[in-house]
Simulated scan of single mutants.
Amino acid sequence: MSATRSLHLAAEIGGPPHYDAEWYVDLARLAERGALDFITLQDSFGRPGPDALAVLSRVAPATERIGLVPAVTTTHTEPFHVSTALATLDWVSRGRAGWLVGVSATPAEARLFGRRRAAPAAALWKEAGEVAEVSARLWDSWEDDAEIRDVSTGRFIDRDKLHHVDFQGTGFSVRGPSIVPRPPQGRPVVVADGTADPAAETAVRHADVVLIGAGRPEEATALRERLLARAAAHGRDPGTLRVLAALTVHLGDGERPLDPGLESAPHTTAGDGGPHYRGGPAGLAELIAGWHGAGAVDGFHLTPAEPRRDLERLVNGTVALLQHRSLFRTFHPGGTLREHLGLARPANPYASAGGAR
């Protein structure tokens, strides 16, 4: 791995539900001040709280650079609506939208809709992959220059540059084109968990950013290499994937000396919610620098145990230390989430194929 490759950092801003938009705006601005690539906001049908996608649509005009990645479940939802809602977020944020792919697995969540019973994980993640696939097709169904907006002729759209989508999934069908023009990023950034199957199979096929749970750098390295190999086997360029270690951080404790033998992974423990770090901002900076420098991961997705306290210490402590060591940027060099991640804007396959697909 090249030592000069970029370090990517992201943070979750969820936690106990808040119904004041300024709570989320303040956290997003804090993360933006630290030049983080993106923030996520977890969501599910099985817990109280406002809708994550709607919240980040409110956050969008109050921020300028930070990527906005809501969790949106593909279960019990209409794929066409998922696609158009995420495209809309990309437009209102001027190219900063992403999508944390989720599924709804519990009987309680199924009863909220009453249309079908809870399904096994394998079926849910297969469906999630199909939703990701048809969403990409819908985002591409408008060529970039399909809008004419010619007042003199009254023509708004070049219909030859709108493309029909006829997709048949296992449990749904979709016919396009989309009702929203192609998003500023071409396609919003797709984020998915890749720690274990069946979610990992969906991630290697469709995600731009893959999150992994690993307690030590050696484990992260092995997971990352397997994911990149699987992506290549599906015909993808492994260089287009960003693999981030998912870590819950408790930064309320003071700095502690590293335990013997744990210099490469200070204070990292495995729990029911995945790997946890407990300690101070400086120790976390050492962990991040060590894992990234060893090529174990492309960066970290950090979930603060206490959102306001830990995010403040992350930005003002950990990120500041990494910036001081020239290991992390001090500003966003681009305007879109894809630019933050070093990912190219996808070409439209309809346009490159002359409209056929």
Rank of each mutant, 00 (worst) to 15 (best):
G299K: 03
P346L: 01
A305C: 02
A285P: 09
G171K: 08
L7S: 07
R65W: 10
V55D: 05
G176F: 11
G293D: 00
H81W: 05
A214V: 04
L41K: 11
A351T: 10
E225L: 00
I148R: 10
R226H: 04
A118D: 09
G169R: 11
T63H: 12
D150R: 13
V180F: 13
T73L: 02
G299C: 10
V165G: 11
V55I: 14
D51T: 10
A203T: 04
G299T: 06
Q42V: 04
G334F: 00
P275V: 04
A118S: 11
T195V: 02
V210N: 06
E219R: 08
A245C: 05
F172L: 01
A119C: 10
T84A: 08
T4V: 01
G239F: 04
A105Q: 13
E219H: 06
D51Q: 14
L211E: 08
L53A: 09
N316M: 00
S83F: 02
V25F: 10
I179N: 14
E255D: 11
L228I: 01
G280Y: 14
A356Q: 12
R216M: 05
L30C: 13
H340P: 07
W23E: 11
A347Y: 12
F172D: 07
A128R: 08
L314M: 06
R117I: 02
L41T: 01
V190A: 03
G98Q: 10
L86I: 13
F328K: 00
E127D: 05
A200C: 11
P266A: 07
A199C: 09
V69A: 01
L211N: 12
V151N: 05
A11L: 01
T318V: 02
A285F: 12
F331A: 15
A347S: 13
R175N: 03
A122E: 15
V190T: 14
A270N: 14
A285W: 07
T330G: 02
G273C: 00
L30G: 07
A31Q: 13
P107W: 10
H292R: 11
V249I: 10
A71I: 06
L341I: 05
A122G: 13
S264A: 15
G194L: 02
G98A: 07
I39L: 07
H340N: 09
D51K: 11
H267M: 01
L321Y: 01
A123V: 00
V249A: 15
R47I: 04
D193G: 12
I39P: 15
S264Q: 14
H76I: 02
E147G: 13
Q42F: 12
D144P: 14
A3I: 01
T269Q: 13
L341N: 08
P281Q: 05
A118L: 06
A121S: 15
R338T: 04
L251W: 06
L314Q: 05
S141A: 01
G239H: 08
T73P: 10
V92Q: 00
G254V: 05
A28D: 00
R29M: 04
G171P: 05
G98H: 13
S104V: 03
W142T: 09
R205V: 09
R345M: 01
V101K: 06
L223C: 11
H81K: 06
R33T: 03
E339F: 07
A62H: 12
A71Y: 08
A199R: 15
A196V: 09
F156M: 12
A246T: 04
G67M: 08
